[in-house]
Nucleic acid binder design. Structure first.
Lengths: 220, 220
DNA sequence: AGAATAGTGTCTTTGAGACAGTATCTC
DNA sequence: GAGATACTGTCTCAAAGACACTATTCT
C-alpha cells in the first residue's frame, strides 16, 4: 500500500502486539513466557509492520518465540501509555490466546495470584507479575479477568480443554477461574452444552467418569 | 521522547482514534456524526501523534468536530484491517463514549436498526450504517452491543441519564438497549442501586413520579 | 473392606417474568 | 369522571446453592 502524501508527514507511534497465551494443565492455569535478549521473561509479541495484521504478526511471533501455533486468539485491548517502552512511543494491541498444547516446554508458568512460577532446566523461577517488563503484568491480569467473565457466555472454555473430557475437568477449570465451587450442580448448570460420548478409563480408583464433548461440535 | 535508533527503521502503520458518542434523548439512542471535508457523515476522531494518548486526542477531536466535552469514554476495541483507509495503513483505536448533552445540534442521529436518522437545517438525512466511511458502521454496532451487554454490570447507564431522573426514564433506556420489557419489575431489579430523592412534576397527566439518583453518587 | 472418585435426588432460597390491581395526577 | 401515568402485591416458574446419598472401581 502506498501512503498518501497528505498524511505522510506525521511522526506517529510504533505499533506492537503481545499475546497472553493460557493453557490449563494439572488443574492449574499456565501462561507462556519467553526470555528476551536481556534475559527477562516477557510475553511473546513484536512490531506490526505496515502491511500485516496485528493478529497475523502475533501468531508468527508466538510460533517463533514460544513454538506454539494453532491456538485461539481474540483481541483483549490496546495499551497506549506514553511511557510503556523507554525506547520509543509504542502502542500495543494485546490478545487473549488459549492453547490445548500438552508440550512440556519450559516457559509455561503456573499462575497463582500475582505470581508466575515456572522452571527452565534446573532453575526454578518465581516471577512477580509486576516485575514483568512494559505492562505485561497488567495484560496478564486483564486477560485472566476477561477469560473468567466470558466463561459461561462464550465457548472460550472449549479452547482450553481437550476435544473430549470428563465433566470433572471442565468443572475444575470453571471453579479455578471463577474462584467458586459448584458442588454437584455443574452438569445441571451446563444444561445441553455437553454431549455424552462414552466412559473413560484413567486407571485411578473410583467410578469411571462419563466423557463429554461440546454439543455444538461435530456429531457423535 | 526520542526514538531509539535500533527500532527507528521500521515503516509502521498510522494510528488513529474514533469515538462512538451516544446519548439518550426522547426515548431514543442517538449517535454523534459530523460532516468531513468530502461532505460525508462519519465518526469524530483523528490521528494520534507520537506524544499523545489516544483518549486525549479523541476528546480534543470530538470537541473540535462535534463541540462535545466532558463525556464518559472507555476503549471499545482496535480496528486494524489492512484496507480500512485507502490512503494508507491506518489502525484505529475506537472508544465508546456517553454524553448527557441536551444540545439540539445537528449531527445527532437517531439510531434505528442499521439506519441513522438526523437533520441538518432543513435537510433530513437517512444514513445506512454500512454506507459510513471506513468501518465506522461496524464500530457503531459494536459499541451499541457493548453498551447493552454491560448495562447491568457497570455504571454506564449513569453516563446517559441526568443526575436525577424518574425510574420510568431509566427503565425506558434499559428496555430500549436490551430489546425487552421489564413490566413493573424494574425497580425491584435495580435493588439498592437507586436512592429516592423526592417527587418530580413534569406537567403531564398521571401520578407524579418519584425521582431517583444513583445510590453510589453523593449523599442526600 | 475401605478409600477414592463419579453421579443423582432433593430441599431451600433467590430471582425473573407476567400481570392484576391500586394510587395519583391533569383536564 | 375519564384518561393517563406511577407504583405495589402476588403468583408462577426457573435457576442457583448446598448437601446427603447412591454408584462404581481400585488396592
Amino acid at each position: 500500500m502506498t501512503t498518501d502524501s497528505s498524511i505522510a508527514k506525521y511522526e506517529h507511534p510504533y505499533l506492537t502486539t503481545d499475546g497472553v497465551l493460557f493453557r490449563f494443565r494439572d488443574g492449574r492455569l499456565q501462561v507462556r513466557l519467553y526470555r528476551n535478549r536481556n534475559g527477562a521473561w516477557c510475553l511473546p509479541g513484536g512490531f506490526v509492520p505496515v502491511d500485516r495484521l496485528a493478529e497475523d504478526v502475533l501468531r508468527e511471533k508466538v510460533l517463533e518465540k514460544a513454538g506454539e501455533s494453532g491456538f485461539y486468539a481474540e483481541q483483549l485491548r490496546t495499551y497506549d501509555g506514553l511511557d510503556r517502552d523507554p525506547r520509543a512511543r509504542v502502542v500495543s494491541v494485546a490478545y487473549l490466546c488459549l492453547s490445548r498444547s500438552g508440550a512440556d516446554d519450559p516457559g509455561w508458568f503456573r499462575l497463582d495470584g500475582n505470581m508466575a512460577y515456572g522452571s527452565d532446566g534446573d532453575v526454578l523461577w518465581a516471577v512477580p507479575l509486576d516485575d514483568l517488563p512494559f505492562d505485561h503484568g497488567r495484560m496478564i491480569r486483564d486477560a485472566r479477568e476477561r477469560l473468567a467473565n466470558k466463561l459461561w457466555w462464550s465457548d472460550l472454555a472449549a479452547h482450553l480443554l481437550p476435544d473430549t473430557f470428563p465433566a470433572s475437568e471442565a468443572q475444575a477449570l470453571y471453579e479455578l477461574l471463577e474462584g467458586k465451587r459448584y458442588y454437584g450442580n455443574f452438569k445441571r448448570n451446563m444444561g445441553d452444552r455437553l454431549r455424552a460420548i462414552g466412559t473413560g478409563d484413567d486407571g485411578r480408583p473410583g467410578r469411571k467418569a462419563v466423557i463429554y464433548k461440546w454439543a455444538w461440535q461435530g456429531q457423535a
